[in-house]
Design a protein around this nucleic acid. Structure first.
Length: 330
DNA sequence: CCATATAA
DNA sequence: TTATATGGG
């Protein structure tokens, strides 16, 4: 999932208040997959409505968005379009992994291995078109804008950040940096405690940011060279060169020997990705009626829970709009 | 993940 | 008030 630049980039813990009043371009697929992986019951099953339709992603999207707005953060979701054809091999591999995970999950449930149940269930997540369109309807009802990317969502989110239509791109993956996002925000969430897969150990998860210029300066690389390093290690478009890790990749690129590896054409996918200017970011007024319609009537959410959440949403929207117009005024 | 109830 | 448990759809 995405390029692994974790060993190379320096991250800085930030407080959510540093994002107050600022639009943040959130990679929608990335966050929805996270919700599907995490929002599950004890047997690893997803939350579903009475008709058996998955709702975990909607729960996550709804409550997370409200929490962000309450913090003054303005989420702008970016949805993927058609994946570049060069990604087909990667996507096929992911399907295989998921098929295997479903088998392992079933076996773990039958044998009652609790840790494995969770582990394998998380790997089976699949986002359908219906789940994505439900997510869009929820956002519409909340008055939260989203952008349709022609191709990769990460690329479009990075483009928004480059154009300063967004203050940052938010994702767990580092690809936005390769696509040129000047600022990447990871772990854009409130709750700070998460359980480690291994044992009953809890780690504190903090929101962090990665500044592209700082990364490049620290490594003494250009963005193009950072892309070269990533391609040698492996990205969503290529498996990487066997036996080459971050350290060796850095050396190769700095010695100017990248072109010996036949990956030159792939660079363009990151340096000139398919993005569009055809979008409008406008925050609207939430519609309690539409929210109740899609969440409660259509998908069996609890009315009392949704009502109190909507109350928070309306209040947060009012103050955030006020804050923004004030910012624009001064 | 998040909200809510309950314990401490 | 804060920490932990559990159900959510």
């Amino acid at each position: 999932m995405g390029v692994n630049l974790a060993d190379l980039v320096e991250r800085e813990a930030i407080d959510l208040s540093q994002l107050r009043g600022k639009p943040v371009a959130i990679d929608a697929l990335n966050i929805l997959y996270q919700f599907l992986a995490i929002i599950r019951q004890r047997d690893g099953e997803l939350l579903k409505d009475t008709q058996g339709r998955v709702t975990s992603h909607l729960s996550g999207l709804f409550y997370r968005s409200i929490n962000l707005l309450e913090e003054g953060v303005k989420p702008v979701y970016v949805f993927d379009g058609k994946p570049p054809s060069l990604k087909h091999e990667t996507l096929a591999k992911r399907r295989d992994v998921k098929r295997e995970a479903r088998r392992e999950w079933q076996a773990a449930v039958e044998e009652g291995r609790t840790e494995d149940i969770k582990k394998f269930a998380q790997q089976t997540s699949k986002l359908t078109d219906e789940m994505l369109s439900d997510a869009r309807v929820v956002l519409d009802s909340m008055g939260i804008p989203y952008v349709q990317a022609p191709s990769e969502g990460e690329a479009q989110a990075a483009y928004l950040a480059r154009k300063k239509d967004a203050y940052a791109a938010a994702s767990q993956d580092y690809d936005s940096l390769l696509f040129g996002a000047p600022r990447l925000v990871r772990n854009l969430t409130l709750t700070g405690k998460r359980k480690l897969p291994g044992k009953d150990v809890y780690v504190t998860i903090t929101t962090e940011q990665v500044i592209l210029d700082a990364v490049l300066q620290c490594l003494s690389l250009t963005r193009e060279q950072l892309v070269e390093v990533a391609l040698l290690i492996g990205t969503d478009y290529n498996p990487g060169i066997t036996g080459i890790g971050p350290k060796t990749a850095l050396r190769i690129v700095k010695e100017g020997k990248f072109s010996e590896y036949g990956l030159d054409e792939l660079k363009e996918l990151f340096l000139s990705p398919d993005v569009t200017d055809d979008y409008e970011i406008r925050f609207g007024t939430p519609s309690p009626e539409h929210i109740s319609e899609i969440l409660c009537e259509e998908h069996d959410f609890s009315e009392t829970r949704v009502e109190s959440a909507v109350e928070r949403l309306v209040k947060a929207t009012e103050t955030t709009i006020k804050q923004t117009s004030l910012d624009a005024f001064f």
